[in-house]
């Protein structure tokens, strides 16, 4: 073994051997370059890698979609009633063939008189949001980091590509929540009955006092998911009064809501949007921080939510 190593490290190639070895090595370099270039070109290496990286872009887009979009547009893109419209429907996407050529035009783009492609529309709305139609309670965020959102440009593009990937087999049947046609936007449902001046003042108290940090009301923008949803609070109040574990002093729904505002510990509703409600989460300070007439207006307003 040592003899062999000695032989190698003390070996001095003859001139002829050097020429031959050099030529062979040079030929190998050329062969490698041929492999890299010519064979790559003849086997569509570039095109194949292009396809693979485009597919990986769709994977990244899927990640974005299921992180930020699926909550309102649905896991299968059918839309969610009251939250957001369908993005995988043929009405919205039209239909594209295997090569990505649009074969059926998008009705939605026609309605909107959108001049660009569907993909461009998705990118634009994802990035910069869209004026609310009134049919959905959620307002589309400006997701692009150009406007303060979390998404980089490549993510905006990838999520649009992922959504467009539905256009090869767009959804045409089953539940599809389509966006209303331009000008046909539905009025917010929860506050359909016009509010009186006192109730309107109560709504302002609701907004001003920070209730939206934890509570949501359908039809009102924003709203948290920590405390109970108040969309039907007037109806629910009646039910809570009948709960055998209810130990408060209220006899009517109005009294119950009033009590819940000023002394929330009296009764804790069992179910909140993100799990069982916890005692002591709602501040017990509204009885002092709000004026008595403000509390009355607030209760008036909440009593309209049946």
């Amino acid at each position: 073994m040592i003899k062999l190593i000695e032989k190698i490290v003390y070996f001095k190639p003859s001139f002829t051997l050097r020429i031959i070895a050099g030529l062979i090595a040079f030929a190998l370099i050329m062969a490698a370059c041929l492999l890299a270039g010519v064979i790559d070109a003849s086997s569509n290496g570039l095109a194949k890698r292009d396809e693979a990286w485009a597919a990986r872009g769709i994977e990244q887009g899927a990640k974005v979609y299921y992180t930020y979009c699926a909550g309102c547009h649905g896991a299968d893109g059918r839309g969610i009633d009251g939250k957001g419209p369908a993005v995988s429907s043929q009405t919205f996407l039209g239909k594209v063939d295997e090569n990505g050529v649009q074969v059926t035009a998008s009705e939605r783009m026609k309605d909107l008189k959108w001049q660009g492609s569907v993909q461009q529309y998705i990118e634009a709305v994802t990035a910069s949001g869209i004026p609310p139609s009134g049919a959905f309670d959620e307002i589309h965020a400006q997701w692009s980091n150009r406007y303060g959102g979390p998404l980089r440009d490549d993510e905006t593009k990838n999520v649009a590509t992922f959504i467009m990937n539905w256009a090869k087999a767009p959804i045409t049947d089953g539940t599809i929540i389509n966006a209303p046609k331009p000008g046909a936007g539905a009025a917010p449902k929860a506050t359909a009955v016009p509010l009186t001046a006192a109730q309107e003042a109560g709504k302002q108290v609701y907004l001003k006092a920070g209730c939206t940090a934890c509570h949501s009301i359908k039809g009102l923008a924003g709203g948290g998911a920590i405390g109970p949803n108040l969309t039907n609070v007037a109806t629910n109040a009646e039910a809570h009064l009948k709960d055998p574990t209810y130990k408060g002093a209220a006899k009517t729904a109005t009294e119950y809501i009033h009590e819940s505002v000023v002394d929330p510990a009296k009764y804790v509703v069992p179910q909140c949007p993100s799990g069982p409600c916890l005692a002591g989460v709602m501040p017990a300070t509204f009885g002092t921080s709000l004026k008595p007439e403000e509390i009355t207006q607030l209760v008036d307003y909440l009593m309209t939510l049946k």
Partner: peptide
């Protein structure tokens, strides 16, 4: 979790 596309190689 991860998303996987058929053509992503």
């Amino acid at each position: 979790d991860k998303f996987v596309h058929r053509d992503a190689d």
